[in-house]
Design a binder for these strands. Structure first.
Lengths: 235, 235
DNA sequence: GCAAAAGTGTTTCAGTTACACCCATGC
DNA sequence: GCATGGGTGTAACTGAAACACTTTTGC
């Protein structure tokens, strides 16, 4: 087509109809935390091709739904949770990655509190799996998981993304254990506390732990404005 | 559907046919460098809706084409260049981002040598635009450009992505000017040289600049294995 | 009183920044 | 000889890492 002839969007669409033949999905890597371990929420694959394997939670994007909105919908449908931080990570588009046909999938990660959402799973065969124990998943979901974990690890010290993994009030030790589970390393207690204090994410409360058999630590919570600014910044 | 009934991929596809109604495209932010300025390759929009505006180079992904391959194809078709570093950045999926219909687009950036590809543009109304001067683009392409520039800036000191912006042999001053153009700051010469030396990306040649009216600097080139490992790592 | 973790500072090290002089070349 | 950039080292600073003792509580 000569470059000086403008075409309308409608004409453009008609001339490319055959291309509107790829489905777009989102896959959510939903991390949780329990027993000092990082977990991820998986579902048994309902495809014969992947019988016995687990897969991430995903769904096709609806024609009238923003891509980001689809990831929020999946999270909401599966966990009942709303207002959660969701981070787009990468888009996976190999031709044969999905046996049902051509599906390009955008991966997101989020972190939620395992206890908060227990109420909302009534139906399903969702299970939390320890991230470290996962060797194989359906589709290319292991690769997606690895990619998301890598990004999470690189962001976790710069953004307060872990705020949802703990109850509202927590001790600094509990927070440190979360970081150790995510990063897969052990951290020095004094340096950790210094670093966290510098970030100014937390407020110290006038309450102590009350369920421990040793000297109780002070409880802390994330400052609400810190969470708000996270949700608006990289949502 | 009860969770204990497995379905085949074929059944799954049939039951979701209406979803195979979203097009997937790639948009390439192709950076170049000239006159100490960072440039980006744009084309006049051929859509009436965006008459007079420029847009990034993109195309719909073909049904039998990997997503990454589509971005390589666009780059090759438009510049004749092959074997270039291409970095996936983000996927943009707002419902109304494209007037032709629902198009979800994955953005990539790359950096090429403006002089190398001059030969290959015979047809078209492609133009290099100074990145700093761009205020508005067709579609959401300004947002895409900004997102890609941000990622480029965050990667440019960690990976040798700039190798293509310069001729094969270049002086350290020329390299520094590239970094200054990308980062939008001016750098200290001694510190810059120290930092680059530490990365061990370059080999010093036994040649000097010969077209300057002052003391000529030694020429350097990127080590081939550095480029190879970049192309395989985040390609 | 003992087990367990809370709380807290200093020193060392590495990496980054700031900064100035002499040198080689073209004109 | 002068204008232009080439080439180089050191001191100050900042952030990260290593490291140990006293305190508080439950039992």
């Amino acid at each position: 087509m000569p470059s000086n002839v403008l075409k309308t969007a409608e004409v453009e669409k008609i001339s490319h109809l055959e291309y509107f033949n790829i489905a777009v999905s989102v896959d959510c890597v939903i991390f949780g935390y329990e027993n000092k371990e990082l977990k991820v929420l998986l579902i048994e694959s309902d495809l014969k091709e992947f019988s016995g394997l687990y897969s991430l939670l995903g769904d096709l994007v609806r024609p009238d739904e923003d891509l980001d909105a689809a990831s929020y919908r999946v999270l909401k449908e599966r966990t009942g949770l709303d207002d959660v931080f969701l981070q787009q990570v990468h888009t996976f588009g190999r031709v044969n990655r999905h046996p049902s046909g051509r599906v390009v999938s955008t991966a997101y990660y989020s972190l939620i509190n395992i206890n908060n959402h227990k109420l909302s799973i009534d139906d399903s065969n969702l299970h939390w799996h320890s991230v470290n124990s996962i060797k194989k998943l359906a589709f290319d979901h292991k690769e997606i998981l690895d990619t998301c974990l890598k990004l999470l690890r690189s962001q976790v010290m710069d953004y307060p993304v872990v705020y949802n993994l703990l109850p509202e009030k927590f001790s600094l030790r509990a927070l440190q254990e979360v970081y150790e589970a995510i990063l897969g390393v052990s951290l020095d207690r004094r340096n950790f506390r210094k670093k966290i204090a510098l970030k100014n994410w937390l407020q110290e409360l006038d309450e102590l732990e009350d369920d421990v058999s040793h000297r109780p630590g002070k409880l802390h919570k994330f400052k609400p404005k810190v969470i708000k600014s996270l949700l608006s910044k990289i949502g």
